[in-house]
Design a protein around this nucleic acid. Structure first.
Length: 349
DNA sequence: CCTGATGA
DNA sequence: TCATCAGGG
């Protein structure tokens, strides 16, 4: 997933800004692709054999553990996450999805084999690749977020597009995503590698970095439209094959030299081999289906509901739950107090 | 992923 | 204070 912009961005000096301290994001609304987050949690939060965590009734809870910890930590820091859920995929994305299915099944097979011969290291590796976000995981995640008072936005199609739209409108500060694809949807800002633990770049850890579309376009000396054409040349989720012999480097060279995709095709530098027009795939990025029907409203977490849901229903350790939850309430109290003081100040002004 | 314990 | 590591459900 994600257009292979990495090498090109490095070469052109698109460095982004290191987020040294998460307090920089205090009070800011961050639009998060929910499905990507759940997938991440599900594939990483595993026991030693690579099996996901489950409750006593056998239902997977890895995604809830991760989502709960991270979301609480963000709220406690005053960072405001809104989770954007995908709708049904665009038809052009189906091939990418099928491809992922195949990869997943291969990984599943290797996982079973590794487990059978007791190679837990290998098993864990393949278990990650075989991870699949199922419907019940999405719905349990939504329930948890609802109890936490965190807004959920349902995208008509691509969550990434909806998240970008929200930032473009100024309703959120940034998209948080592992890749740069939000830029293709016009998000002015993307934060990569957003985690709660320090991650100050030591021990080869990925840093938390804030990138702007401005920087990307300036350093690459491209227009936004050209960035989209560049992505299509390299290969996107909607044309994952890209073009034979064309990688990020040559794609960039062509766009710089000839300006747009039509010219490059016309000159015979690449053969257009898709059953759709250039403009059709471009439109997915330039004009994606998004909804304006959302509201970003943070409510007070429902302590009892959360405990009932996590502890009673899914066997979470109550101590751990309150260790995460109480700092959120502490924060809320402080905010309320500050708010009262501000209005008092207004009154006497 | 993230925490908390442990030991330097 | 920091690095390492097990364990989470």
């Amino acid at each position: 997933m994600g257009v292979k912009f990495g090498p090109l961005f490095r070469e052109k000096g698109v460095t982004g800004q290191i987020v040294e301290n998460l307090t920089i994001l205090e009070g800011k609304i961050i639009a998060i692709d929910a499905l990507v987050t759940l997938y991440e949690m599900l594939s990483i939060i595993r026991d030693r054999q690579g099996k996901p965590l489950r409750d006593s009734r056998g239902r997977i809870t890895s995604h809830l553990v991760g989502l709960f910890n991270r979301t609480c930590r963000m709220l406690a820091l005053g960072i405001k996450p809104v989770y954007v859920f995908d709708g049904p995929p665009h038809p052009l994305k189906l091939r990418t999805i099928q491809e992922r299915h195949i990869r997943r099944e291969e990984a599943e097979q290797k996982y079973i084999e590794a487990l059978a011969r007791g190679d837990f290291e290998e098993a864990k590796k393949y278990a990650k690749q075989a991870a699949r976000v199922e419907d019940y995981m999405v719905s349990t995640a939504k329930t948890l977020l609802e109890y936490l008072g965190v807004p959920i936005i349902q995208a008509p199609h691509d969550g990434e597009a909806q998240a970008a739209f929200i930032v473009r409108k100024g309703d959120a500060y940034s998209v948080s995503s592992p890749d740069y694809d939000s830029f293709l949807y016009g998000s002015p800002r993307v934060i990569r590698g957003l985690r709660i633990t320090k991650g100050g770049g030591r021990r080869g850890e990925e840093e938390i970095k804030e990138y702007t579309l401005d920087e990307v376009l300036t350093k690459l000396e491209l227009t936004y439209e050209q960035l989209i054409d560049l992505a299509i040349l390299i290969g996107t989720d909607f044309n994952p094959e890209g073009f034979p012999g064309i990688g990020p480097k040559r794609a960039y060279e062509y766009i710089k030299k000839y300006g747009n995709l039509e010219r490059i095709v016309k000159l015979g530098l690449v053969r257009w081999r898709y059953p759709f027009e250039v403009d059709e795939i471009r439109a997915i990025f330039l004009n994606p289906p998004v909804t304006t029907n959302y509201k970003i409203e943070f409510k007070e977490p429902q302590r009892e509901k959360i405990i009932e849901f996590l502890v009673e229903e899914h066997d979470f350790n109550p101590e751990r739950v309150s260790n995460e939850l109480e700092p959120v309430f502490k924060r809320l109290e402080r905010e309320e107090k500050a708010g009262r003081q501000a209005s008092l100040f207004d009154f006497f002004r």
